[in-house]
Amino acid sequence: MEGHIAARAPGPLPRVGDDPAAHFRERALALASTVDEVGSLEYVPRAVSAYLNRHSLPLAAVCWPQFAALDWNAHGVRSEARAATATDLVGITGAFCAIAETGTLVLVSGPRTPATVSLLPETHIAVVHVSRIVRNMEAAWALLRTEHSGGCPRAVTLVSGPSRTADVEQTVTLGAHGPYRVHIILIWRA
């Protein structure tokens, strides 16, 4: 038993093409996420502002502390770094990493990465460095063990598109209890 756990042997892996970022993008779009790309972190406020305007959404967001220092004011976005409350309409998060195989965001809870920001608002915007796109879940777990050596974080949440339900007449409806929209901004330069 202990030996098997220690070995952490992966099972048979499906093929992910040579370009994980392209694969991620394709899968994310297939699951009804939207994807934008910017050159570097400083362009994120502009991209967020453009997205919110395009969808006639309020230019006010709750975000993870790591984005607090960006120049939001220059693009007319009011942003507050804290956990989300019931009235927040837009939440901006980063991601621990992203999984190409399924177009999935991996979010990890912690003092600076509150889980509510990606959950309570109707719109979830996630900012992901392209270098953090890994091929599959197994690679994400390997990264998790390296970077969180103290054990599994309290909540590891895989997000693959906006929340949905097909409970009534098996008709897929986007926006059940979680966000109606998931918008992913990929950053090409670290």
């Binding site: 809870s109 309290r154 909540a155 949440t157 693959s160 906006p162 929340s163």
Partner: peptide, 24 residues
């Protein structure tokens, strides 16, 4: 189950809220 390659959410929960966590 539903013909999805993955469900929208997979939630893995371990232990209780940390001392400095804002939620959980």
């Amino acid at each position: 189950a539903t013909g999805q390659s993955i469900t929208n959410y997979v939630s893995i929960t371990t232990g209780v809220k940390g001392r400095e966590d804002l939620d959980g």
